[in-house]
Amino acid sequence: MIHFDNVTKVYANQNRPALDHVSVDVEKGEFVFLVGPSGSGKSTFLRLVLKEERPNAGTIHVAGKDLSRLSNFKVPHLRRRIGCVFQDFRLLPKKNVYENVAFALEVIGKPRRFIRKVVPEVIELVGLEGKAHRMPEELSGGEQQRVAMARAFVNRPMILLADEPTGNIDPATSIGIMKVLDRINRTGTTVLMATHDAAIVDSMRKRVVELEDGKIVRDQSRGVYGQAY
């Protein structure tokens, strides 16, 4: 599903590569944690999957497509097959829960009847039934993140990228978020989650890829966060 082959990314005006000859394969339906300290290249990895950045060397395949051969014109179609969740939620403050989720479908031109059918389903999937007409400011951090996950998943993407989704949320609420991610993963969606949160990684027992200074230092199925134990 995601295939990195010897990928190197050096940002302009920087000597040290953000990613240094990274090769990784993520299969369809997998749940992968991407761990490592700040600046280790986790975010760069996610940006490369979305083709927000281009690698300086190496090839990237996402959903069977070679990104270097994907024209800019087709990048939006790639992104429709990838959902994204961020630490800062990125909701539209002037739209309610339903409208925030529907927005993702409206802007890719889905018919209204389709939107009316699927949006309530997804809101229920993330556990926000009955809150469809609340505004983001009326929701807790955990609930806002659920809205963001609903928006990322409403188009049934093949891949869900989560960049520190629990970074702004207290540990108790984080468990609920992880349950939603797990539920999404069980529908067959590949989930790739970058995180600092050791407790979550340890409790989930999923595959762990650890980056340090742009290199993969560990790739372990059913792994834990820290190497020491």
Binding site: N72, P76, R79, R90, F103, V107, I108, R151
Partner: peptide
């Protein structure tokens, strides 16, 4: 957000 969810450039 439009960019992330794959809205076309024209849109």
């Amino acid at each position: 957000i439009m960019r992330l969810v794959g809205a076309s450039n024209l849109y």
